[in-house]
């Protein structure tokens, strides 16, 4: 363990902890844009600058390991002025789009502009303009809102192991893009969307479906493969408009393309809405009462004529435990046969 002092408080942290992590561990807030706790430190945004006694210039706390006896100051007029300048510089090249941005209310840059009270900007001049929109159906990339924090590059490489994007060009022309600036063509897991601190990366399906107001969040479990990732369904009215995942779960907030973007089937117009009974070879709509009376009647007929073992049930690996339990209870206890299975064996 290492002992250091941050803003006059003595703290002990394990070896190898960065100054930023040490401060956050004890709820001392240092603003950041490029830092992400699950990715390697970058030191790119310069917001996490702190003063350390004995070091002449401010240093980035996300890349500085805590050391024994270190005395750190996280806020001072000089530091706050530096941070404000950094933000003003970023905002001077950022569209004033909050009114129509998908991420308004859930944007780290907007939040920091609010805390630092930045409305007017001392800086002006040329802005990066990008008109290209790529054709992939999942991820909207609005590169004018990109602040080059590099989180998307890191998550794609360090977590997903795909490295579909990287920094290209230098200086004012720097941008993040797939090789040769082609359209994004990857696994579309959307990890990059999950870590983007601004509105640069969003889900195409999210567009104009609702932002934060009146959106309910419901935590549930994914219905695709057996990993069992935690999902947060964002619901407006009676529609799931967005899917995210919390970071403090089994899947650490990471999802795949199906979990993150494969939710539109819920609201598909092709969903079955009424019971159907076959009449003269055609399936026709019926009331629940008619349909269930019919099912019960026909099942009883078969059972009376051929015995319970002439009936079988196939249950579903897609349904809940409770439903599966009730299904086999119905087949075993009510119909009277052990002819019940599901496609687990497949």
């Amino acid at each position: 363990m290492i002992k250091l002092m941050i803003d006059g408080k003595t703290l002990s942290v394990p070896d190898g902890t960065t100054v930023l992590d040490a401060a956050r561990r004890f709820h001392i807030n240092i603003p950041t844009l490029c830092h992400h706790p699950k990715l390697t430190p970058f030191g790119g945004c310069r917001l996490c600058l702190v003063e350390i006694k004995g070091i002449p210039r401010p240093v980035t706390s996300c890349t500085t390991p805590a050391a024994e006896g270190m005395e750190v100051t996280t806020t001072s007029p000089n530091l706050e002025s530096l941070r404000k300048t950094v933000l003003e510089l970023i905002l001077s090249d950022h569209p004033n789009d909050c009114m129509i941005c998908e991420r308004a209310g859930d944007c780290t840059l907007q939040e920091l502009a609010y805390f630092y009270g930045i409305r007017k900007n001392r800086f002006s001049g040329e802005r990066r303009t990008y008109s290209k929109r790529d054709g992939n159906p999942f991820i909207e990339r609005d590169m004018e809102k990109c602040i080059l924090c590099g989180r998307c590059v890191k998550v794609c490489d360090e977590v997903e192991g795909v490295a579909a994007i990287d920094f290209a060009y230098r200086g004012f022309k720097s941008k993040i893009c797939p090789p040769y600036e082609k359209d994004l063509n990857c696994e579309f897991c959307g990890q990059c969307v999950a870590v983007c601190p601004t509105g640069a990366l969003t889900g195409k399906a999210w567009k104009q479906r609702g932002r934060q107001k009146d959106v309910r969040e419901v935590d549930t479990t994914c219905a695709y493969c057996g990993c069992g990732c935690s999902l947060t369904l964002h619901v407006q009215g009676n529609e799931v408009i967005r899917v995210t995942s919390r970071e403090d779960t089994l899947n650490e907030g990471w999802l795949c393309v199906k979990g993150r973007f494969g939710y539109n089937f819920i609201n598909s117009p092709e969903r079955l809405k009424k019971p159907l009974i076959r009449k003269d070879g055609k399936l026709e709509e019926a009331s629940w009462e008619t349909a269930l009376d019919y099912v019960a009647g026909r099942l009883k007929d078969v059972r009376d004529k051929y015995g319970p073992n002439a009936i079988a049930g196939l249950s579903s690996a897609r349904c809940t435990n409770e439903e599966n339990y009730l299904f086999q209870k119905f087949i075993r206890g009510v119909i009277g046969t052990n002819n019940v299975d599901h496609c687990a064996r497949y």
């Binding site: 479990t221 219905a223 057996g226 799931v240 819920i266 079955l272 409770e322």
Partner: peptide, 28 residues
């Protein structure tokens, strides 16, 4: 006979994942 059922987003209950973990499903 075809009976129209609810999707996972429309029901409460539990799923058990591949590592035997019983997790909540919630109606949204």
């Amino acid at each position: 006979v075809v009976l129209p059922a609810a999707s996972f987003a429309e029901k409460d209950g539990t799923f058990t994942n591949t590592e035997r973990r019983v997790q909540r499903v919630r109606r949204a």
